[in-house]
């Protein structure tokens, strides 16, 4: 785990209101694994850091994906090249590829693309054939970037690709990895209990001490999205108790 004063090196639009931000964070870039995240703070900004999956690694740089949803993300998006953020990571337990899967399907919804690119590249490097199924509300909300051998689009309104959800549009495979709204992940769990899913929770410290990012488990009790997670076996989670809708408080 590293605490890096990271210089922002770029920003690009990849879907409606959705941006990729690139920052210079060499020790994180060289150690991050698919499904892991960074906890980012900036000033002036909210008190708590905000967690972001690492979307891609490019040399000494890492990339994150964000949408302008609140005051905090708007502040982050208003930063320009050369501005600095405090980047803590890599954090959490990511995707596992095990021994011998020959095919993988990656299911992402909306911002869920954030943890998929690294996973797709890792799978490809292991000789696994990757099908990426990406869902969003409309054509404009689909991420313009993708990876993998085959690509399937799904939109709620049918404006691009298959009409319907990404889960419904996805084929079966040896390995299923998913990231998106918790409601979508619950659907993944219903179809593929063995799938690995990256959940979303509120987060405090990001390092395992505050116990704020509790994930309810089917066997009872809770563990921490920031340490044991954010990636879980889908059938291990008590989906009825995991909040399906998070809305960050305004934090001027």
């Amino acid at each position: 785990m590293f605490l890096v004063d990271a210089r922002i090196t770029g920003k690009r639009l990849v879907a409606r209101d959705m941006y990729v931000i690139t920052m210079h964070a060499p020790p994180i870039a060289s150690t991050v694994l698919p499904g892991q995240f960074v906890n980012i703070g900036w000033s002036p900004g909210p008190m708590l850091r905000r967690p972001f999956s690492v979307y891609r690694v490019d040399g000494e740089r890492i990339e994150i994906v964000l949408k302008a949803v609140g005051v905090g993300t708007a502040q982050l998006l208003s930063m320009t090249q050369g501005d600095r953020v405090s980047c803590l990571g890599p954090l959490g337990h990511g995707f596992e590829f095990g021994a011998g899967p020959r095919s993988a399907v990656l299911v992402s919804g909306g911002l869920g693309v954030a943890s998929m690119t690294l996973a797709a590249r890792q799978a490809a490097s292991l000789g696994i054939r990757v099908t990426w199924v990406h869902g969003a509300r409309t054509k404009e909300d689909l991420c313009s970037e993708s990876d993998g051998d085959d690509l399937i689009w799904a939109t709620d309104d049918g404006s691009k690709g298959v009409k319907g959800t990404a889960v419904a549009a996805a084929p079966d495979a040896d390995l299923v990895l998913a990231c998106g709204p918790n409601r979508m992940l619950a659907a993944v769990a219903a179809r593929w209990p063995e799938a690995q899913v990256a959940v979303e929770t509120y987060m405090g410290c990001g390092t395992g001490v505050c116990l704020g990012c509790a994930v309810p488990l089917k066997r009872g009790g809770y563990d921490r999205a920031c340490r044991e997670g954010p990636v879980y076996r889908a059938s291990d989670i008590d989906w009825a108790t995991l909040p399906s809708h998070l809305s960050y408080a305004a934090t001027p």
Partner: peptide, 23 residues
């Protein structure tokens, strides 16, 4: 003790609320 169900924390201006439930 298993603690309270999520959400357990929320950020507020210059602070945060927590209800961990002494897990």
């Amino acid at each position: 003790r298993s603690g309270t169900p999520p959400p357990r924390i929320v950020e507020t201006p210059s602070g945060m609320l927590n209800a961990i439930g002494l897990q």
